[in-house]
Design a binder for these strands. Structure first.
Lengths: 299, 299
DNA sequence: CGACTCCCATTAGAAAAACTAATGAAAGGT
DNA sequence: ACCTTTCATTAGTTTTTCTAATGGGAGTCG
């Protein structure tokens, strides 16, 4: 007799909801909207012929049967997750040599190294620092994380995050209301890295402002400096909607002053030499880095 | 840290394949085509970055890592299936009083009673026999399984199976090749239950034959009799593609002589009095009966 | 040896499922 | 009383999944 399983996507939605006791939070964990979760849970309740949650206004609680049911399936899902992690990491041993800008390593990768180690226990990461692309033929590097355009000759690339939003310090916001209009932003000092004003030009173009002659750019050596400039309240930076600024956003040191996000070629990419079969270690790292980005964007 | 799960539908496909060591058989277990399984497994292999099966011509075998992985996830899926079964059956206690034609009870339901009991251990079934709908206001019956039209005034209905195919004994097939053309079938004796020639008329209409004046109908009291008639080689019966004839088909006593299947209003339905909230016991039984039908049609 | 059969792979397109945006409704907080 | 928060629902879109058709390779049988 073949095994009879419920719809497993619905099951996952239910389990996440049960953990959070919130449709909204479950939705954010699974990177979907609250409506999607609501649909899933409702379908599951219909299938099972039992209520799974009691709804009291904006609160929900598990029914007696549902409580028992989660207790049964949670370890099962854990086991699947663990077996999957083990399988994925299998064979990924050795060292992956990465090049990236210092502020990316400091702010994004290193603080989460433990998490990465848990997923790929036998994989060592080695860092070297370069804000720009390296020459793979002369430097012994497997892959490079670059904040820039997504295509380079002879290199394969994987998008990590190509959405960018304008941020500034809350102190600069005095007297202004969120969202700050693009016209107002155009009058503020705009931080960029040297020679990379394209991002801002794209952003204003997306905001419907084409006269960019009067923009006031302040150029810096590194992306970290543009962030510092914004953080100290001296101007606005255009940054990837990425773990980069997670801490600052949550403490309120930085604020997204206009929700307009541009998705252009300019963003964070992982580059590596083009081959038929890319090194699985690189793919694993790219996969992980993307998940880090996704986690943040989901709030 | 949110749990990271693989696509669970792909996982189910993989697990079924691993049990059967066959894409084809896994497909049939899951009621899909072989291509669907192939896609799922391939996607999983891509996600994991590992081959899961070695392909040797038409044989497949598990890779070493995959073997380990199945061993990990199989108990997890078992546990989910079991927890689901428990939850579904919860609260379904007492007795469900069913009315159905004798041959349906004898051929379909009773041989599988043990299976039903396993799913709903606290639910008793009681049978009474009627080929036609009963008057729910006078007879103490919860639901009726009827071979007929799918809509009756004041009653809700659930389709169990509304596909019908022509069958006859292999002895009648002497000198004919499968599939037998509709024109040839039109010359054979056609068994129906009394006053229900609609099924055959629909079938011939679907086959493109509109002149039904010369058809040779033999009418019987019960559906069982039309099957007997076909089994003894005296003519052709039009039956639901359903467990009814499973045994006869597998032994070769009956043969589907033309694959044309009609899906019309006439079929097997579960009827019960229309209410706002149907008795979950009825829904559970309908659910199970549908699964029995699906199992057979998948071969 | 060659035709045949049996599976798996691949493709393009169809069908179904999942998801979203928008909006409503209920309850809690201010 | 008003605003905020959260779940529900609807209709429509997007994405995923599935299928039908077809090709290829490896056994099998005459």
């Amino acid at each position: 007799m073949p095994r009879r399983l419920p719809n497993l996507n619905q099951l996952r939605a239910f389990e996440a909801t049960a953990r959070h006791l919130s449709f909204k939070d479950a939705a954010s964990e699974l990177f979907v909207t609250q409506a999607a979760i609501s649909h899933h849970v409702k379908a599951l309740e219909l299938d099972f012929g039992h209520q799974l949650f009691q709804r009291h206004g904006r609160e929900i609680s598990l029914t007696e049967e549902a409580r028992r049911f989660v207790a049964d399936i949670t370890p099962a899902l854990d086991q699947i997750a663990e077996a999957t992690a083990t399988l994925k990491s299998k064979g990924l041993t050795g060292t992956l040599k990465l090049s990236m800008a210092g502020f990316l390593a400091d702010r994004v990768v290193r603080p989460r190294l433990a998490e990465f180690k848990a997923l790929y226990p036998e994989l060592q990461l080695e860092f070297s620092y370069s804000r720009d692309i390296v020459d793979f033929s002369t430097v012994e590097i497997d892959a490079a994380v670059i904040y820039g355009e997504g295509t380079r000759k002879g290199l394969a690339s994987i998008v990590i995050c190509n959405e960018r939003v304008p941020v500034c310090s809350s102190s600069l916001m005095e007297g202004l209301e969120l969202p700050v209009s693009a016209e107002q932003i155009a009058r503020l000092p705009l931080a960029t890295t040297k020679g990379h004003t394209t991002g801002w030009l794209d952003w204003f173009s997306a905001a419907g402002i084409d006269d960019t002659s009067s923009l006031n750019f302040i150029e810096f050596e590194t992306g970290g400096h543009t962030l510092d400039f914004a953080t100290t309240g001296d101007g606005v930076a255009l940054v990837a909607d990425f773990p980069l600024i997670q801490h600052e956003l949550s403490t309120g040191a930085l604020v997204i002053i206009n929700p307009l996000t541009i998705t252009r070629d300019y963003g964070i990419y992982l580059f590596f030499p083009e081959t038929q079969n890319p090194d699985p270690k690189i793919l694993a790292f790219a996969d992980w880095l993307k998940s880090v980005a996704a986690q943040i964007q989901a709030g």
